[in-house]
Design a protein around this nucleic acid. Structure first.
Lengths: 211, 211, 211, 211
DNA sequence: CATGAATGAGGTTTCATTCAT
DNA sequence: TATGAATGAAACCTCATTCAT
């Protein structure tokens, strides 16, 4: 599956002026809205522009093509999550395992849940977009942060840190995605961090090697 | 997002003659192939027919539209996985927790991994298709089987079985998906069942209430 | 608008054997039925064959193509009407104008109304078919019969017989078509011959020249 | 035979700019042309667009589908005729029967004949289109106008006005259609109003009841 | 003779993208 | 810079017709 050249996906111009900023935000928001109300298959540039209150021409002033738009929206979302995870991981270096898990899981769920609609809308977009690379990159970022954090745990040591971090990361993502895509009740969503913590902590403790 | 009427997704006719059977199989296989080589966005009915060595018309004799074809392919895959999970769950009723986890995780990973290409190809297809309902249904099926199994564990008891089964199920799915989509090495894939077992067992033991 | 060669529209073989006769009848009947229930645009050879309880292949044994089938159905209907009109006209040669009109109008309405569904179904078919020639031919046949009849009227004489016959013929056809296509009530249909008679007789009397 | 939802047949956007207006007119004209030169069965959206000198995409900017285009063309034609009839009928309220007939018949024939090609082209289109409703509606409009007019005749009175108006209307339409579809000579066409007048007036006088 | 699976040209429609205004 | 009409490649799908069984 050929990847589009990285250049083709970059936004066309940085919104320097205020007016531009407003326009770009409107387009972003409209993209999410259309994704949610019409589904990824029915997301068209015209519809996005319409919902954003601008003309298609204007949309194309900011994004060279549809992929670039979706890429940008997905990117922003994933970046936010990654930043949250990185921050939480950095903040708990040298802490105990349970504190690490609580912090990272909390940050992850919070970031994903802050705008439930956005997260939900974007799950479906990945395949519209040749986004493997982007998703992989963010995955690596998360695992790196988690790896680095786990290496400093005050009460545990791990053999295959890369694999452990991979599992940790994917273990958070799985149930979160299942809940968001499944339209989970807010009751369930509230229970998520606790159970995710239990899931990850149980795993890490089992995999920890005696120091 | 409106769901298409169930009727619109049903295959058009069952292959009675030998010739038909061969054709339908070729179409199925071609769908997977195209999905893998061209990606879901570039999967067109013409391309599938071409790859299957039949004409478009023939494809449409068996599937009323593109969605129905994708639906059928996805359905077969998900059904296989669900059956594997159900069989494993049924077989370990009344066993100990560790045996249950090992059985179910093993069955799940095996079913998903048996045809790595198929599984990988289908992750992307869900959004091309208004398949939420199908995915949800299979999810419920898995959780029901797991619930029923866990209720008979000889060495554990659970408070909120529904939620526990949800987490169990999604915890298996998350890392499996991550590996398949990420193009994990066979080394990693081999390690998957063990770590998935650890992940789920650790969680279940933490969540078990004293009998 | 190019006319198909006359040869291409001829039925392929005459049904000599009983079995064939039954099949052809079934196909005829099915054509009418499909026309009525699905409309001319959705009439497909497959659907006709299905409704007739035979395979498409069989249909093509009797008609070389779809047009030929429709042509045959239309032809039979128009021929029946033309025969009725001709018979009535012949039978009233030398009669008085009022008798002529009553006879022809009665025969026409009866022929068209005998199988309301058939008549109604076939109005729409003419344009699916390059049938101008057929329709024109039958029109000429009717006008010729009417012309010949009017020429012998015992109580009237006409200047431009061709035009008079044209008007007579079309004046019968207009309201009849309007009623059939408009789904007129049976009350209206019952009133039709009387009013048609009045219409045509009034006209003829006005157009008759003093002997 | 299911009627398409009225919405599906509505034009997509009104031409605001000059450029649009020109485009829409070209499409309209091209539709008539293709209808005449290729026949209704060979009228394709591509061909219409081509003839109009625009791209298919442009055609679809103004009409959501082929039916809507044909519907619009038919509608405009029928509306013109109906307006002519209504105007003539209104103008002769309280006149004598002969004046009424002359006025209405004249208006009708003139409206139908003004653009012979258009009228001729559209007869065949009705069946390509699920247009029964439209045709019926216009029929009702004509009959209503005629009814209202006849009710005020200074020299006649009628029992069943609805039926009389129906016959009047259909009696005008029949021969007119026959001539246009039959490719009548201009000599015949010139004779049409006179004979139509004779036809209708003869009928009405016969059906009038003594005041 | 009958069957019905297969064919594929051709029709309809969409939508990302451009560019004259 | 913004607009939105126009473009046309490309997708989906139908259905008349053939021919191996």
């Amino acid at each position: 599956m050929p990847q589009p050249s990285a250049a083709a996906l970059k936004p066309r111009k940085q919104p320097r002026q205020t007016r531009s900023k407003v326009t770009v935000d409107a387009i972003f928001e409209a993209t999410i809205q259309v994704l949610l109300s019409d589904g990824p298959r029915r997301l068209t540039t015209t519809r996005v522009a319409e919902r954003a209150g601008v003309s298609v021409g204007t949309l194309y002033q900011y994004y060279p093509n549809k992929q670039a738009l979706l890429y940008a929206v997905l990117q922003r979302h994933l970046a936010r999550v990654a930043e949250a995870v990185e921050a939480a991981a950095r903040a708990t270096h040298h802490a105990r395992l349970s504190a690490m898990v609580a912090a990272v899981v909390g940050a992850f769920v919070h970031a994903k849940t802050e705008r439930v609609d956005e997260a939900r809308a974007l799950y479906g977009v990945a395949s519209e977009l040749d986004s493997t690379e982007l998703v992989q990159a963010v995955g690596r970022r998360n695992r790196t942060a988690i790896s680095a954090m786990l290496a400093t745990a005050s009460d545990a040591r791990f053999d295959d840190l890369a694999l452990i971090a991979f599992m940790f990361s994917a273990a958070m993502a799985g149930p979160t995605r299942a809940m968001l895509e499944g339209g989970a009740s807010s009751t369930m969503l509230r229970a998520l961090p606790g159970h995710l913590g239990s899931l990850c902590l149980g795993y890490l403790q089992r995999e920890a090697v005696s120091p």
